[in-house]
Amino acid sequence: MFPCTFLLEHVIRNDSVATHGQSKWLRSFSGRVPKPPGEVDFETWCLHVELMFNDGTPVDIQRRKILESLLPPASDVVKQLGYSAHPREYVRLLDSAYGLVEDGEEIFARFLNTNQNPGEKASDYLQRLQALLNTAVSRNGVIPADASRHLLKQFKRGCWDHNLVLQLELKKETTPEFAELLLELRTEEDRRASKLDRMQRHFGPTKIKPIAHMHSVPDFPHHTDPSASVLQAYISETESLKKQVAELQLQLMTKPSKKQRKRQVKAMETTQEPPAPVIETLVHQIPPRTQVRAEPKAWFCFRCGEDGHIARNCENAINKAVVDQKYKELKARQEEWKAQQQGQALNWSRFR
């Protein structure tokens, strides 16, 4: 009788140890950036380790599971502690290497500046706020007793769905906890989604498109929402653009045609035509612009003397003889051009 009882107790004890080993399995963590597939970040890994500490797992199993879950370079960090250190020493050392370095007050300031992103559900936004707030609380940036109050206050400030925020203010007399608030948001989102689905089935896919778009735009009342001024400015700018388009259309309608413009030009020419001597005088006074030419420029490379490129982009050998010859030709053309300009100036002075 005694051997059977001892054997049964041994099997139960071994099964309990095996169960502890299977239930406390940890995901791999290496500390590499970017995070490799199949691994978790440091915050998630620390959460799993803390759960293992709170479950009363034996210390030797905790140590073995932690060391088995670590991959280089994270495993190289804890090697200096050896294989007999306490598991919390491993976590403390890894936290100094891979944990957040921001102060609790800085994290809380980032929490206060976090708003709902475009297309983000209200429940997802609340979970994102909760993660930041938990980090601020763990780093002594927020008093734990005030966490729920800060969470609800920032959610009302950063959520753009004013109808949902107003519904929370009317329904709640006390500050709800995170789990209660999250459940209420998910219930409201599911109610809206089911209602939209019923509307689509009732009106059909072709008629529901503008209605669905209208429901996706949050309501911004003018008396409470701080972004009401932005919406009002957008409306006024749209009205101003409409007025400008209407004025341009009116100008195009009243604009004379080409034939009418030609007739007006001919009438002005006949009424304001100067006498023949005056026209001849004006013709002699106006210099012939078509004959004015620009001063000759260098058209060759100052390195090899070839045309089509400059010395900065030249890869040919230096040819000083060709460069000197073309430089003399350039000087001769420039002197000729200056003489022509002086002659034209003398001819122009005779008519004055």
Score class of each variant (00 low, 15 high):
187 T>M: 03
179 A>E: 13
310 I>S: 11
190 D>E: 12
267 A>L: 08
218 P>E: 01
302 F>I: 05
282 L>V: 11
305 G>M: 00
250 L>Q: 14
222 H>D: 11
183 L>P: 01
246 A>C: 06
210 P>F: 00
244 Q>P: 04
277 P>T: 04
257 S>G: 10
245 V>T: 14
241 L>C: 07
178 F>K: 02
196 L>K: 03
317 A>P: 07
298 A>M: 15
247 E>I: 12
307 D>T: 13
240 S>D: 09
297 K>G: 05
209 K>R: 07
273 E>V: 10
263 R>E: 13
295 E>L: 07
192 R>T: 06
233 A>R: 08
271 T>W: 10
249 Q>V: 09
240 S>E: 14
316 N>F: 10
188 E>D: 14
218 P>G: 01
291 Q>M: 07
234 Y>F: 14
178 F>M: 03
257 S>N: 07
276 A>G: 07
233 A>K: 10
321 A>S: 07
295 E>C: 08
302 F>G: 03
296 P>M: 00
183 L>D: 12
242 K>E: 13
239 E>S: 15
192 R>I: 06
225 D>W: 01
196 L>R: 08
297 K>I: 05
219 D>Y: 11
241 L>S: 09
288 P>E: 13
312 R>F: 03
275 P>R: 11
211 I>Y: 05
205 P>T: 08
256 P>N: 02
179 A>G: 05
319 N>Y: 02
194 S>F: 01
284 H>K: 14
317 A>I: 09
225 D>K: 02
200 Q>I: 05
183 L>T: 07
193 A>Y: 00
208 I>L: 00
289 R>G: 15
316 N>Q: 14
300 F>K: 00
254 T>Q: 07
280 E>L: 12
260 Q>T: 09
180 E>A: 15
178 F>A: 06
207 K>L: 11
276 A>S: 13
321 A>E: 08
303 R>H: 05
233 A>W: 03
227 S>Y: 11
180 E>Y: 08
219 D>R: 12
320 K>V: 04
283 V>N: 15
185 L>T: 02
205 P>G: 02
274 P>M: 02
214 M>Y: 10
293 R>D: 05
211 I>V: 11
184 E>I: 10
294 A>D: 09
274 P>H: 01
261 R>K: 14
273 E>M: 13
257 S>Y: 03
179 A>L: 09
309 H>D: 02
203 F>G: 06
205 P>H: 02
235 I>A: 04
289 R>H: 15
299 W>K: 09
270 T>D: 09
227 S>C: 11
245 V>N: 12
223 H>P: 04
314 C>V: 03
298 A>F: 08
250 L>C: 09
213 H>L: 12
198 R>D: 06
293 R>E: 09
313 N>T: 15
231 L>P: 05
287 P>N: 09
194 S>K: 06
249 Q>A: 09
230 V>T: 14
208 I>Q: 03
301 C>Q: 00
316 N>M: 12
224 T>Q: 05
297 K>H: 03
312 R>K: 03
186 R>P: 05
299 W>C: 08
190 D>R: 10
286 I>T: 15
200 Q>D: 06
277 P>M: 00
316 N>V: 11
186 R>S: 02
311 A>H: 00
187 T>V: 05
245 V>D: 12
234 Y>Q: 15
218 P>D: 00
255 K>G: 13
312 R>N: 03
